[in-house]
Nucleic acid binder design. Structure first.
Length: 430
RNA sequence: GUGGACGUAGCUCAGCUGGUAGAGUCCCGGAUUGUGAUUCCGGCUGUCGCGGGUUCGAAUCCCGUCGUCCACCCCA
């Protein structure tokens, strides 16, 4: 296979046999978002590089080494979006949507990060991004989480659980960061190479270390919760009370931090044990300071992003996506005149019974081949039109899902007769 | 960016310590000259990922490279 014909690494085709789960997720989620009063907003895939540097944070992994950044022919530095929240915040500002408004928005589409691909991780991947802008209280946080919980139920996905934390305001987090840095600095000799690297860049990430040797040290570290400002603490407490009242189970992980700088207060992650090393399927939190930071009027906000590929895999494992529906009728025709007439008949049937697949045999073939295709299509009924039938002004109808002989029907009466037979067939098959 | 495993027909794979490729499946045709399953018969497809080296001879051994997968890192 020639190298030039391969897809770009980490950017995958979604084949027809995989699409059912995607469409299932998209349908369920669109319906759910409508139920909760969220409106779709479509934002560009490309933004000014500056937007991501200022929102996600200049010293995060995403911005430092994972962005697809290029100069366009006008000399502007542009970037393929690595996530959608920044673009939505920008859209709210640049379209003048704020002015104290309360926005409930969602968007979906491709995101790009230049990472090494592995299970559940791709360079082009797809997210649903849901954002509530202009709401300060914990009630939105709770409702967004309830929306997710309902989504798992509607999808029949059970292997997910909720993890929560509060990061406090950025001021409180700054104090905590300093305390953490001091603590790890005093134990610098015991740190592994990764942790030493993080010590000055992002000491909060040391808490995430999977190295068992680091565990004891991390256990003894200062806890973020102790540094929360009283307002954040109250916000978090009432969020917890609301989740309890909604009977949504969660665990608190005081070491849950997010990889994007704009988060404050509530952060949450829905994680799974079914996807290998990539356990986050849906995660988000508050970003109360982001919009002001980008030059908009100060507006609190909260949102989450859901990884479509990862949830699709959970759906696949759960086996809850319906297969593509089989056509109701497969039209078999042989002979030039019969084929031309059959095309007309197929159109008539589609007119008479919208939503019930009518598949015309295309590309000819002998009767044996055409019947084989009809069988494989899963069609309920075969409509057969050969020269012999055409000469007598009839078509033959044969049920394919049970042992039965075929009958004939005058061409003029076809739509009614086919409808009646399909009703009978669905009746006998259930 | 780091590490490990693996690249042979459209797909799943076999091919032992070197002698220039095979099975199943899929697809097509026939038995059934106008009827789907099964069965039987026949047919189709490969620069053995790519490049180089060792050798009389490489799918097989060595080196490089590209790709896939998994893990680290990070995240959806």
């Amino acid at each position: 296979m020639s190298e030039s014909l391969q897809a770009v690494r980490g950017m995958n085709d979604v084949l027809p046999r995989e699409i059912a789960a995607w469409q299932h997720l998209e349908r369920v989620l669109c319906g759910l978002l409508q139920d909760y009063g969220y409106e779709e907003l479509r934002v560009p895939v490309v933004e000014h590089t500056e937007l991501f540097k200022r929102s996600i944070g200049e010293y995060t992994d995403i911005v430092e080494k994972e962005m697809y950044t290029f100069n366009d022919s006008g000399g502007d530095s542009l970037t393929l979006r690595p996530e959608a929240t920044a673009g939505i915040a920008r859209a709210a500002i640049s379209n003048g949507l704020l002015r104290g408004a309360r926005l409930k928005l969602w968007t979906a589409g491709a995101m790009f990060r230049h990472e090494r691909p592995q299970a559940g991780r791709f360079r082009q991947f797809h997210q649903f991004s849901v954002e509530a802008i202009g709401f300060a209280g914990p009630d939105v946080d709770a409702e967004l989480i309830a929306l997710c919980a309902r989504l798992w139920r509607r999808l029949g996905v059970s292997r997910v659980r909720l993890v929560l934390n509060s990061l406090g305001t950025s001021a409180a987090r700054g104090q905590y960061r300093a305390a953490l840095q001091a603590y790890f600095q005093s134990h610098e000799a015991a740190l592994d190479a990764d942790s030493r690297r993080r010590l000055h860049g992002n000491p909060l990430r040391i808490l995430d270390s999977k190295n068992p040797a680091m565990r004891a040290l991390v256990e003894g570290a200062p806890v973020l919760t102790d540094y929360l400002d009283s307002e954040s603490r109250a916000h978090f407490e009432s969020l917890r009370a609301m989740l309890d009242a909604l009977a949504i189970p969660y665990t608190i992980n005081p070491r849950l931090v997010r990889g994007l700088d704009y988060y404050s207060r509530t952060v949450f992650e829905w994680i799974t044990d079914a996807l290998g090393a990539q356990d986050a399927v849906c995660s988000g939190g508050r970003y109360d300071g982001l919009i002001a930071q980008l030059g908009g009027e100060a507006t609190p906000a909260v949102g989450f992003a859901l990884g479509i590929e990862r949830v699709v895999e959970l759906i696949r494992q759960a086996g809850t996506a319906a297969a593509a529906p089989a056509p109701a009728v497969y039209v078999i025709a042989s002979g030039a005149q019969a084929e031309a007439r059959a095309l007309q008949l197929a159109e008539q049937l589609r007119e008479a019974m919208p939503g019930q697949g009518v598949q015309m045999n295309l590309g000819g073939g002998n009767f044996k081949a055409q019947f084989r295709r009809a069988d494989r299509s899963g069609a309920c009924l075969a409509l057969i039109l050969g020269d012999a039938e055409l000469a007598r002004g009839v078509a033959a109808l044969k049920p394919l899902r049970r042992e039965a002989g075929q009958s004939e029907c005058a061409l003029a009466e076809l739509p009614g007769r086919v409808g009646k037979m399909l009703e009978e067939e669905s009746w006998t098959s259930t």
